[in-house]
């Protein structure tokens, strides 16, 4: 959780997301475990302009990131740009930020849990 409200740019956040998607797709554990998971996620940074993205996971496979909020989401993740970027860089774990209220979500807890599981598979090689 960012202490001094550090910011990253929309471009940096987008890059972080794209790298995250690449990592997710080469993680055999993430793809196997999340094989039955399909989820449209809207990601919004609330401290910088034009930082809204759509991330779609279809049967465990991460689709390329789209800029803007597209379609009706299953899950919405909002937070400060740095807190969001730290999650997709793998520097902070989503649940920890979530439990401390640094990021806010809307949607089913099961989807939040699977998003966290994906991060754990990618970065902790569980």
């Amino acid at each position: 959780m960012s202490q001094e409200q550090e910011k990253v740019s929309a471009e940096e956040l987008e890059t972080a997301l794209r790298e995250y998607v690449d990592r997710a797709n080469v993680s055999p554990r993430a793809r196997k475990t999340l094989l039955s998971w399909t989820c449209r996620i809207h990601i919004q940074a609330n401290d910088i302009e034009d930082a809204a993205f759509t991330y779609v996971v279809e049967k465990g496979e991460s689709q390329p990131i789209s800029v803007g909020l597209i379609g009706v989401p299953d899950l919405i993740v909002r937070g400060q740009s740095f807190d969001l970027a730290e999650i997709f860089w793998g520097d902070a774990n989503p649940v920890s930020n979530y439990m401390q209220g640094a990021i806010k979500t809307q949607g089913r807890a099961e989807d939040v849990m699977r998003l966290d599981a994906m991060a754990m598979f990618i970065f902790l090689n569980q």
């Binding site: 009706v72 299953d74 919405i76 809307q106």
Partner: peptide, 8 residues
Amino acid sequence: MSDQKTLS
């Protein structure tokens, strides 16, 4: 926090 009026 419910800015979003629609969820699937």
